[in-house]
Nucleic acid binder design. Structure first.
Lengths: 217, 217
DNA sequence: GTAACGATGTATCGGCGCGATACATCGCGA
DNA sequence: TCGCGATGTATCGCGCCGATACATCGTTAC
């Protein structure tokens, strides 16, 4: 899961660990909190021994005179290898049930620009199915067991149901978008993904701050 | 984190592992997927050696004649101890920054019926602050770095922003509710917390089944 | 009658990822 | 010049997950 994300970022440009973490935080911010160093560095090592990435010099310290008091070690820049790129493509195309899980789905989605349309559709549909099941679970609990649960637990269920419902709609718009050929240009940065304007008022253009009105429907 | 959840459930009634997992899944369904046995059983053992819970008999197998072919082991019913109840209260009142994290917040919230109003407010406000920061992060990325990100990453940010915004509003309603004294009755099941008039058509009566009383004992 | 199957039930194992922690350098303002 | 926050690499313990194994029970199918 981290493998895919790291390979993806290094695919764009070489980087050192710290920078990698920052980029991951913004790119995957909507999905996972912030990748920990306790995961990052071991993963980097694993990727390196597997041959997917290599250290790209940059330990300048021109003078060898400087006695390495405490094993002096500058910033280590990693870059992806040819095998790494293959591995990345493999991981991207791997559409198992794992790819529908919250975190994994987010990572896959974040690299959709590099993914084929059919793969994109399969992932989006799988994810939708999963969230739909989740949503039905909430509905059943609310319908069947409402009397046996306290008010706060019920409120939690309602919030969950609402969130799931909203994500399903979001996914449906994305799927429709993909199907109708109007996919954003795979590489282009200025592409407008924005589904049709008459969605719910959810994904509003950032220029306009979300208004106070919240009439969900 | 699991400790709190397990103690909370066992506080309501004794239970065995399997049942515990099911109840956790519905009670915390909106928060975590489904607690794994690989977490549950070790945690139960830990809680037991700590003295918070005990095994409450129920390994009937009346006859000692039956040779335990493969270390025959019936269902193990756990119950909370007096120390466990204290521990539960301690954990409930512990309002550190951890309590604002996604999963931990959900668990705390699920047991709000057993929590004092001031603690409830502190947790809700802490959570709100956290989600607000998250939301601002999305806004900044969308405003500042929109050109450098591809369409899908942007879409992910928008969706994240929307979800965060929505949760903040949800929290604000809950906070207002708590402040205005109109808290749902701590134990009552029929209390109306419902913030918005209708989220979706969630709590519909659909095929009303006659209450299948599944309490085998 | 019995075979198959899914739900119930307990348990372990490998491994991923987190949070805390340690340590070092660098630029900047007090 | 002193501290402090940002930059930067790294390890350790452990919580939790997913896969797996195994046993029992009730119901359905043949």
């Amino acid at each position: 899961m981290l493998d895919l994300a790291i390979l993806g970022l290094l695919h764009e440009s070489p980087m050192h660990g710290y920078e990698l973490r920052k980029q991951l935080s913004t790119k995957l911010g909507a999905i996972r909190a912030a990748i920990s160093y306790g995961s990052l560095y071991p993963t980097l090592r694993r990727l390196q021994t597997a041959g997917w990435i290599t250290e790209a010099g940059e330990t300048p310290a021109g003078d060898a005179d400087v006695p390495p008091l405490t094993s002096r070690r500058g910033r280590v820049v990693y870059k992806i290898t040819a095998e790494g790129k293959e591995r990345f493509q493999d991981l991207l195309a791997q559409v198992g049930p794992e790819a529908y899980e919250d975190a994994a789905f987010g990572v896959h989605f974040a690299f959709f620009s590099r993914t084929d349309v059919d793969i994109r559709l399969r992932i989006l549909e799988g994810r939708r199915r999963k969230v739909e099941e989740r949503r039905e679970g909430f509905r059943e609990v609310l319908a069947r067991a409402a009397e046996r649960l306290d008010a706060y637990t019920l409120e939690l269920q309602r919030h969950g149901l609402d969130a799931a419902d909203r994500e399903v709609r979001w996914l449906e718009e994305l799927i429709a978008n993909e199907r109708s050929g109007r996919t954003p240009q795979p590489r282009g940065a200025e592409g407008e993904l924005r589904p049709s304007p008459r969605t719910t008022d959810s994904a509003r253009p950032l220029t306009a701050r979300p208004g106070p009105d919240d009439s969900a429907q």
